Computed example of a mutant assay.
Amino acid sequence: MMRRGLWVAAWALIILVLIMPLAVVLAEALKNGFGPALETLKDPDGIAALWLTVEVTTIAVIANTLFGIAAAWLLTKYRFPGRTSLLVLVELPLSISPVVSGLVWLLLFGAQGWWGPALEEAGIHIAFAIPGIILATVFVTLPYVVRTLVPLMEQQGRDTEEAAALAGAGFWQILWRVTLPGARIALVSGILLTTARAMGEFGAVSVVSGHIPGLTETMPLHIESLYNGYQTVAAFTMAALLACMALATVLLRYAPAFLWRSREVPK
């Protein structure tokens, strides 16, 4: 009885908090029909927001994947003074409000910031430009690859890597042929989590972007602009597209684990 009650409560919460909002977004986007909804996506500012989101997400994912692999290797293979502090710093973006991180970038690179005037004189624009959006997105998505890799790499131990080293393998051979293949599910999971988080980031990007339509508006910012401009169908259509992109990313996250388990099932 208790098990059934928990099952009902869990599904009720999922339907209320997850499924219903997605259904409402889709219903609002299609309330005038499929054609008008698709027509709103042809807006040049909307297309620019879509491509900017893809560009920023791609750069953030590449940067944080490389950083995540390096940081996870350092944290799991070595013991050094300050290791705990490094772990805390890696997780800092999870506990700091994205708006606060956006304000920090403005303090550093804004027109009245510490380094902003000097950079402006050199022709380098960070605040209210794409580099600022990239920096903000990289910051808020920094922990995901590290935090998914560290537990699995710690569980792996060092026996296989030491055996490979004794066999004459170099650092890069050990990393790419021994360590990462054993942690591929965790790595893919971290990359996809980073992707989903980067696509949907609003707070930090909103602060540093300047909300310039067609130039510094990502999809979340463009959705806000459309909604504030009473373009409800266009706003919900863009929101539905973003939700579908995020949902596809989440589903892809579980695909490697599912395929890996299916191979382990005895025939």
Rank of each mutant, 00 (worst) to 15 (best):
T65H: 02
T137A: 08
R158Y: 04
L106G: 06
S97L: 08
A118R: 11
F80V: 13
V61A: 11
V138M: 12
P117K: 08
F109N: 05
G113F: 07
W114Y: 11
L149E: 00
V104W: 08
E121M: 08
L92I: 12
G68V: 03
I62F: 15
L149V: 01
Y144E: 00
V61E: 09
V104D: 00
V104Q: 10
V138H: 00
F80E: 11
I134F: 03
T84S: 15
P131G: 06
A122C: 09
L106H: 05
S97D: 09
P98D: 10
G132A: 01
I59N: 09
F109Q: 06
E121H: 11
V99D: 03
P117E: 07
L87Y: 12
T65G: 07
P117M: 02
T65F: 03
V61K: 10
P117F: 05
I62N: 06
A111D: 12
L152N: 03
R158S: 13
I134S: 02
I126H: 02
F67P: 04
W115E: 00
V99F: 12
L75P: 03
V146Q: 00
I134C: 04
I133V: 14
V150F: 01
M153Y: 02
G116V: 02
F139I: 04
V138T: 05
V90Y: 02
L74T: 13
A127C: 08
S95G: 15
V56T: 13
P93M: 12
Q156G: 11
V90F: 04
L86W: 10
Y144L: 13
A129C: 05
P81L: 12
N64E: 14
A71G: 08
V56K: 09
L142V: 03
Y144T: 03
W73E: 13
L119T: 08
L66D: 07
F139Y: 14
G113R: 07
R147M: 04
P143E: 06
Q155S: 14
I130W: 03
L89Q: 10
T137P: 07
G110E: 02
T137L: 02
A127L: 05
W105S: 03
V145I: 13
L107H: 06
A136P: 06
P131R: 08
G123A: 01
G68D: 07
F109S: 01
F80W: 13
L92M: 14
Q155N: 12
A111G: 08
A111L: 08
I130H: 00
T65M: 10
R158F: 06
L75S: 06
L149D: 00
V100E: 05
R83M: 14
S85T: 14
T148K: 01
G102H: 04
M153T: 02
T84D: 14
L75F: 07
E121N: 13
N64V: 14
L75H: 05
R158H: 12
Q112E: 13
L66N: 11
Y78E: 14
T141N: 10
A118W: 13
P98M: 11
I134A: 01
V104T: 03
T84E: 15
D159F: 09
A127G: 07
